[in-house]
Amino acid sequence: MPLTFTLDPAITPALRDGLLDLWTDVTDAGGAVGFVPPVTREDVRPELLRHFAAMSEGRARLLVGQDEEGRVAATAFLTFNTHRLMTHWLWLYTVMVHPRHQGKGYGRDLLAAAEDAARGLGFEAIRLTCRGGLGLERFYASCGYKEVGRVPGAIRVGPGEDRDDIFMLLPLA
């Protein structure tokens, strides 16, 4: 059954808790979403609050995918570029699909919903970064994104474990 996507849902305690659970579960399953496992909800909470602050300031929008039971199953934050010469594109951050839903095509659905949202908001491109060493760049490339830059060893996930920071771009025009 497909996910139901909502741009800018009301931030309720249930949604907040669902986002915390999603982020924690994705990280603990090995997902590259800003942390190294294991994490707790309390580890993730400050970062989620930073995203909420950006939303309240009008600098970001939240896209949420919910499963047939109404649980948060996928998410991405569409973050506006504040540099006055780069306002024609936005960043896609914290792209996540819950591990119980992986392999169902929901990642592609989430990226398509993000693309639709960005187009609807009048943007010409989406940029994102991903952590090397996990094959994420191949997934994003299969969804139309092109690698436009790479910083070798920019992400340190542990002692002696450095990963590339890969920049991807999806032109919308």
Results as ranks from 00 to 15, higher is better:
Leu3Val: 03
Phe5Ala: 10
Pro9Asp: 11
Pro9Trp: 12
Thr12Gln: 07
Pro13Trp: 07
Ala14Asn: 01
Ala14Leu: 02
Leu15Gly: 05
Leu15Cys: 08
Arg16Ile: 02
Arg16Met: 03
Asp17Ile: 00
Asp17Cys: 01
Leu19Met: 15
Leu19Ala: 07
Asp21Val: 14
Leu22Lys: 13
Trp23Glu: 12
Asp25Asn: 15
Gly30Pro: 13
Gly30His: 12
Gly31Lys: 04
Ala32Trp: 05
Val39Asn: 11
Val39Glu: 07
Val39Tyr: 08
Arg41Glu: 14
Asp43Arg: 09
Val44Asp: 06
Val44Trp: 08
Val44His: 07
Leu48Glu: 03
Arg50Ser: 09
Ala54Val: 00
Met55Gln: 14
Glu57Leu: 14
Ala60Lys: 07
Leu63His: 06
Gly65Ser: 04
Gly65Cys: 03
Glu68Leu: 09
Gly70Lys: 00
Arg71Gly: 00
Ala74Gln: 07
Ala74Glu: 07
Ala76Asp: 01
Phe77Ile: 05
Leu78Ile: 13
Asn81Cys: 02
His83Arg: 10
His83Leu: 09
Met86Val: 00
His88Ser: 03
His88Pro: 00
Tyr93Pro: 00
Tyr93Ser: 11
Thr94Lys: 10
Val95Arg: 04
Val95Pro: 08
Met96Cys: 15
His101Gly: 07
Gln102Asn: 13
Gln102Glu: 15
Gly103Ile: 13
Gly107Gln: 08
Leu111Glu: 05
Leu111Ala: 01
Ala114Lys: 10
Glu115Ile: 00
Ala118Asn: 02
Gly120Ile: 03
Leu128Tyr: 11
Arg131Asp: 11
Gly132Ile: 12
Leu136Arg: 06
Arg138Val: 09
Ala141Tyr: 07
Tyr145Cys: 05
Glu147Lys: 14
Gly149Glu: 13
Arg150Ser: 08
Arg150Ala: 10
Arg150Phe: 09
Ala154Arg: 11
Ile155Val: 13
Arg156Leu: 12
Val157Cys: 04
Gly158Ile: 01
Gly160Gln: 04
Glu161Cys: 00
Asp165Pro: 00
Leu170Arg: 13
